[in-house]
Nucleic acid binder design. Structure first.
Length: 329
DNA sequence: AAGTCGGTCAACCGCCTCCCG
DNA sequence: ACGGGAGGCGGTTGACCGACT
């Protein structure tokens, strides 16, 4: 007993759409101010097509907001960056490129970008560089920083998308006035990929942050500061409190925006964060784990052909932040 | 000129997720 | 809570076309 077909194929036309069929479909959708039920649309519109075929034709070709023409360099770079983070999630990638469809992006990837990466010695599956023995090399410090550059780029795109969709979003963290870009991005589609991203290849011992997340404790402070150093560029103290061991610092993100973080100073390797929630109403459990996961995101994407090396920023900043634990406000 | 090959892209297939009754 | 239907999604196919031999 096989799967029931999406629709009765008997008497239905297949293959390329004719201009007449296109016109019928467009007229029907325009006249009815929407497609309604795709399954019943062909019958109502007088098309001998299955509903899925109509939906595909509309979303991939006939939609008025479809952007035609070749992809720009910027679009291609963005697709590569997003693919590095999202993988083959074409719909999610397409959501970051207005007017482009998932099918179009998928085709571009399979016919151009994938081959280009291979030619440049980059594994298109995991975006790691091929080594001489054919395998892919593991993370280096420069890869780590480049990954964060990717993240920053994706953040910008997600912000743009969030602003477009802000009228439909009720999450307080997505409020336009919220200055915490990490949290805003975290709740975007791109952040979703990070929340779900497995800590593959990292054992608890070499992944102190994720371990701390599950146990409610901070992990190795040096590890945390090293990671945060990769994504933040320079800082200035705006407030300090010796009694509470908390210091507030303003960091410049890669794009130059101010990001305020709390620094938990401590001489011990592990610090309980039980008081965090009381000290900041904005930082709930989900945002804590979000930051943990962000910091714990495996560094395995090399975008060397797109980004400049930012090693200097990373090393200098992480050195400054020794013996401190950082939480976003 | 004819055949072959490779690239492109629209369209299809089937699985998955979500929503609604 | 559960099941079925509808839509969404990613992988794959195949027709078409141009370049090359």
């Amino acid at each position: 007993m096989g799967r029931t077909p999406c629709c009765d194929k008997k008497g239905l036309k297949r293959g390329p759409w004719t201009p007449d069929e296109d016109e019928i479909l467009v007229n029907y959708i325009n006249k009815n101010k929407g497609h309604g039920s795709w399954r019943t649309l062909p019958h109502h519109a007088g098309l001998l097509r299955c509903g899925k075929s109509c939906r595909l034709r509309w979303t991939n070709y006939l939609r008025p907001d479809i952007k035609r023409g070749p992809f720009t360099d910027e679009e291609e770079k963005l697709i590569i960056q997003l693919h590095g983070m999202l993988g083959n999630r074409w719909a999610a990638i397409a959501s970051q490129l207005p007017g482009r469809t998932d099918n179009e992006i998928k085709n571009l990837w399979n016919t151009h970008l994938r081959k280009r990466l291979i030619r440049m010695g980059v594994n298109p599956q995991n975006h790691e560089p091929f080594t001489s023995d054919g395998s892919t090399s593991k993370a280096s410090a420069s890869i780590a920083t480049r990954h964060m550059a990717q993240w920053e780029s994706a953040r910008l795109e997600a912000e743009a998308r969030l602003s477009r969709e802000s009228s439909n979003v009720s999450t307080p963290l997505l409020d336009k006035s919220d200055s915490d870009y990490f949290l805003r991005l975290w709740y975007s589609e791109v952040g979703e990929s990070f929340r779900k991203f497995p800590t593959a290849g990292k054992t608890p011992s070499d992944s102190p942050i994720s371990e701390a997340s599950s146990s409610g404790k901070c992990g190795s402070i040096s590890a945390v500061t090293t990671e945060i150093g990769h994504c933040l560029m320079g800082s200035s103290t705006i407030a300090g409190n010796q009694d509470e061991d908390i210091e507030y610092k303003v960091f410049k993100s890669i794009t130059g925006e101010d990001m305020v973080y709390r620094i938990y100073k401590s001489n011990t390797e592990n610090v309980t964060r039980g008081s965090d929630s009381s000290s900041s109403n904005k930082l709930d459990d989900s945002s804590e784990s979000a930051m943990d996961l962000l910091l714990d995101y495996p560094i395995n994407n090399d975008m060397s052909f797109l980004e400049d090396d930012m090693n200097d920023y990373a090393t200098s900043t992480s050195a400054k932040l020794e013996n401190a634990f950082i939480c976003p406000l």
